[in-house]
């Protein structure tokens, strides 16, 4: 029997598409044979190749579009939380691929945090999550980091055990690594209570060439984080804005402190009081980076304003 009694978070190191299909199809079929609910969250071409291999069995799998959901890795835990809660008393397992070739450095940092935080989010929830990593396209540092977040790494026929991540590891996701400095052409503005309209005016000026829908999305995400500074961050903050390729990058600093490593990953309930700002920023933005110590908090948002 392979039924999980607690959260089992394994990394699968595979070599290329054929190896991916072979290894993951076995994991899916094992679940289906045991009448477990099975979900697969991977990107193309692997989703298509696995569907083809599973043939008729593919219809019994929940397919999650990782390219859309996982664009911002902070959206993946809530997606798994929702799917797992929907299973009721049924046993369930999943395949989740948060890291793929083409992710840039900032995304990779947050994806690693995501992989670590899965262990916190699902502590005590009995299910198996298999995270495939392609050794032929990902760099050695990315593959090496897998052992810090996955208690078991499957590599070829070997199964290598590693220590379970602990509370210190979860807390560390809010501490670093340090964000690279803002570029020289960034615009800066200090704001305090009563000056949020001025923050929006700056955003509109920096996005004067951008379509209205994209501008409105950026305005909402930035306003929520700036509003957090006013309400919880000492009543004031500093915003820095710059364009980077197709992105608007916005950094907001204040004197507040974020202590929950899963902040922004809890789907809001209708009755809860606060805690919506970071959630909404995560839904809108392609990347949200939070760094928080006793001296203050910085939240860096990245929004694609071209599409």
């Amino acid at each position: 029997m392979n039924t999980a009694t607690t959260f089992r978070h394994d990394a699968l190191l595979y070599a290329g598409l054929d190896d991916f299909v072979k290894r993951t199809a076995g994991f899916v079929r094992e679940g289906l044979v045991a009448d477990e609910a099975v979900a697969v969250a991977v990107i193309q071409p692997r989703a298509g190749a696995l569907r083809e291999e599973l043939a008729a069995d593919a219809a019994h799998v929940t397919w999650i579009d990782m390219e859309r959901v996982g664009r911002n890795p902070a959206r993946i835990i809530p997606a798994w939380a929702q799917w797992t809660q929907e299973q009721g008393t049924r046993v369930f397992r999943g395949i989740g691929e948060p890291i793929w070739a083409g992710r840039d450095d900032a995304e990779l940092v947050e994806c690693r945090h995501h992989e670590t935080l899965l262990n916190l989010a699902f502590d005590g929830v009995p299910w198996q999550l298999l995270c495939p990593y392609d050794t032929t396209t990902l760099d050695a540092g990315t593959i090496d980091a897998v052992r810090h977040s996955h208690p078991q790494v499957l590599h070829g026929a070997a199964r290598i055990d590693h220590p379970h991540p602990e509370p210190d590891h979860f807390a560390a996701t809010l501490l670093g690594p340090a964000l690279p400095p803002a570029p020289d052409h960034a615009e800066h503005l200090a704001f305090r209570s009563g000056e949020l309209a001025g923050v929006r005016a700056l955003v509109r000026r920096v996005l004067s060439d951008v379509a209205r829908a994209q501008t409105n999305h950026a305005l909402l995400a930035i306003s929520e984080i700036a509003g957090n500074s006013v309400a919880h961050g000492g009543g004031a903050g500093t915003i820095s804005l710059w364009r980077q390729d197709s992105y608007l990058v916005c950094e907001i600093r204040d004197a507040g402190r974020v202590v929950d490593p899963l902040a922004g990953r809890h789907r809001p309930t209708p009755d809860q009081d606060g805690g919506r700002g970071l959630w909404i920023a995560n839904q809108i933005c392609d990347l949200v980076q939070i760094r928080s110590t006793e001296t203050g908090t910085v939240v860096r948002l990245r929004v694609d304003v071209a599409s």
Binding site: A213, N216, L220, R267, P268, T269, P270, R276, I280, Q283
Partner: peptide
């Protein structure tokens, strides 16, 4: 945008 915000904030069934 407002409809989306109401839904994202978890207030679409108040």
């Amino acid at each position: 945008d407002l409809c989306d915000l109401v839904e994202m904030a978890g207030w679409d069934r108040v």
